[in-house]
Design a binder for these strands. Structure first.
Length: 509
RNA sequence: GCGACCGUGGUCUAGUGGUAAGAUUUCUGCCUGCCACGCAGGGGGCCCGGGUUCGAUCCCCGGCGGUCGCACCA
């Protein structure tokens, strides 16, 4: 049997304790779909909230929420219908399948064969007698694979619709109205955290590649003649690990360690806005618990880039099981999308400058996969210590903030604990309560779901109103009073106080 | 989608052509004065369909799902 990977270990706890598990289990399951349980739902919600702290609230950007199903016209205009598919050809002998356009390019040296269309690809395959590169066998006629989910809108099937494979089009389609809501001022951004669907041919790696998942994305609109980012100075000194396009082409293994401002000055990052978002993103990923040395930015090579992008940097995080995995992408989309929608819809999307000239805004887009961020958060916070599982989740991400335990379940301690629990709930905290088994077992159980603090109600609590707070990470305790507890917890979760400041140290024999 | 391997209580594993074991979890009661404590008792399972067989969780075929490799991942 293969050794258990960290992914196996984390997933086992996730399933057993209720973070996430495979969907449709009772009907045999279906790969590419995941169900979040209580803990996972809360953790995911907290990561989304933290993302909005970094990318929406701070800058005063706008949010929207747009339909998942879109009519076909949208994807004609966006270019997805043309680009979100490939011509796949399978070998009749060994069964392997290949991208027909890539095979033609290899054999003939032609470029951009994909754009020539299906019929041309079919005849080129025949003309050049292209065989299976694996075994030399005969290849089947290429078939078109569309990786968007297709459906019909309306009961009589009047119009074809597709589930969106990204949320960006929503921001572009609603750009003009939002621009007015922003009192026609540039730059501004539209953000959305919402579900998208991609009909992946063969999803693998559990949480990393799903068919239905949540994207957190924003489109920043700016005047290409006024490309300065007003908050650039906040991130300019952040050091990142960078792999530029040129470094990728020359197969350079060591990253360029460089500050954001230097990378922009040298033209390695094309715009200040990309630099800004890459810097904020570095902080954000660090805030979910991934240290800088496990982060890097890697440029997309031209043939890897999406049809709309002039430059894209993937932000990758090093996971123990799979190595470097993309967590976000920061794409420079220029005016590609607004221009397309303007042409296809006939709606003018240009902006008037003070000098009377008109222009289509340029766009920079940072985009995040929430589901894999959640996995990265769990994996990075996981520790096995003294045969126990601990998730050292950042305190602002933990599904539950505090656990309340009576020391023993007798002598009116449970009743007292219940009082403390209701008080904390009334104060707005996320609280769990447990009185089963030994207190040590209950501490262990709350560590396993990443609850940062546990409050123990003992005889001194009943007699003098003094209780103890126990820290998940250090397993140490401090004591304070029932009356002081809420404000202490509030300061702790706001990050104003550290654990040791919450009360007097408790020393046990 | 192709190939290899795999599918046993909630979870992790053992095992078998005669319907199944252990740990853990969960429930009940007792116990419990700070780190998965102890005792007693209870609950809970062979992925689905077909075939071979007196009898299939085990063998065969198909499906579904998982892991890995190839391909795909805009």
């Amino acid at each position: 049997m293969a050794p258990r990977t960290k992914y196996d270990v984390v997933s086992e706890i996730a399933k057993r304790r209720g973070f996430y598990w495979p969907s449709f289990e009772i009907y045999g399951g279906m790969s590419g779909f995941v169900t979040y349980g209580d803990l996972g739902t809360k953790l995911k919600r907290n990561i989304e909230a933290l993302w909005k702290e970094h990318f929406v609230r701070r800058q005063g950007f706008l949010e929207i929420d747009d339909p998942v199903i879109n009519p076909e016209r949208v994807f004609q205009a966006s270019g997805h219908l043309e680009n979100f598919k490939e011509h796949s050809s399978m070998c009749t002998k060994c069964g392997k399948s290949f991208r027909a356009d890539h095979l033609i390019e290899e054999k003939t040296g032609m470029e951009n064969v994909e754009a020539m269309g299906g019929e041309a690809i079919k005849s080129l395959m025949v003309d050049h007698k292209i065989k299976c590169p694996n075994c030399g066998g005969q290849l089947k006629e290429p078939t078109l694979i569309l990786t968007m989910f297709k459906t019909e809108i309306g009961a009589t099937g009047g119009e074809i619709g597709y589930a969106r494979p990204e949320t960006a089009q929503a921001m572009f389609m609603n750009y003009k109205r939002a621009f007015q809501h922003n009192r026609e001022k540039l730059p501004f951004a539209l953000a959305q955290a919402s579900k998208v669907l991609r009909n992946e041919i063969s999803p693998r790696q559990g949480m990393i590649r799903l068919r239905e998942f949540t994207i957190m994305e924003l489109e920043l609109f700016f005047d290409p003649e006024d490309p300065a980012c007003p908050w650039f100075s906040e991130v300019k000194d952040i050091t990142i690990n960078l792999y530029t396009e040129k470094m990728m082409e020359n197969d350079i293994k060591e990253p360029l360690v460089i500050t954001i401002s230097e990378a922009v000055e040298k033209g390695l990052i094309l715009t200040e806005w990309q630099g800004y978002f890459m810097g904020v993103s570095h902080q954000f990923i660090q805030a979910i618990g991934v240290p800088p040395e496990k982060q890097r930015y890697r440029a997309h090579l031209p043939d890897e880039r999406a049809h709309y992008s002039l430059q894209t940097y993937d932000q990758e995080v090093q996971l123990e099981t799979w190595g470097w995995i993309e967590m976000s992408g920061c794409a420079y989309r220029t005016d590609f999308d607004l221009k397309n929608h303007m042409e296809a819809s006939g709606i003018d999307m240009t902006v008037l400058r003070e000098d009377g000239t008109r222009f289509i805004p340029y766009v920079v887009e940072p985009s995040y996969g929430l589901d894999r961020l959640m996995y990265a958060t769990l994996e990075n916070s996981y520790e096995r210590k003294n045969k126990r599982n601990i998730f050292h989740l950042p305190r602002n991400l933990a599904p539950y903030q505090v656990a309340v335990f009576p020391l023993v379940s007798k002598d009116r301690l449970p009743e007292k604990a219940e009082e403390v629990r209701s008080m904390l709930i009334q104060k707005g905290f996320w609280v769990t309560y447990d009185e089963k088994g030994s207190i040590g077992r209950r501490y262990a159980r709350s560590d396993e779901v990443g609850t940062p603090l546990a409050v123990a109600i003992d005889y001194k609590t009943v007699e003098e109103g003094i209780l103890t707070i126990r820290d998940r990470d250090s397993w140490t305790q401090v004591s304070t009073t029932i009356n002081d507890l809420p404000s202490a917890l509030e300061a702790y979760f706001k990050g104003e106080k550290e654990f040791s400041d919450l009360g007097a140290p408790v020393v046990r024999e």
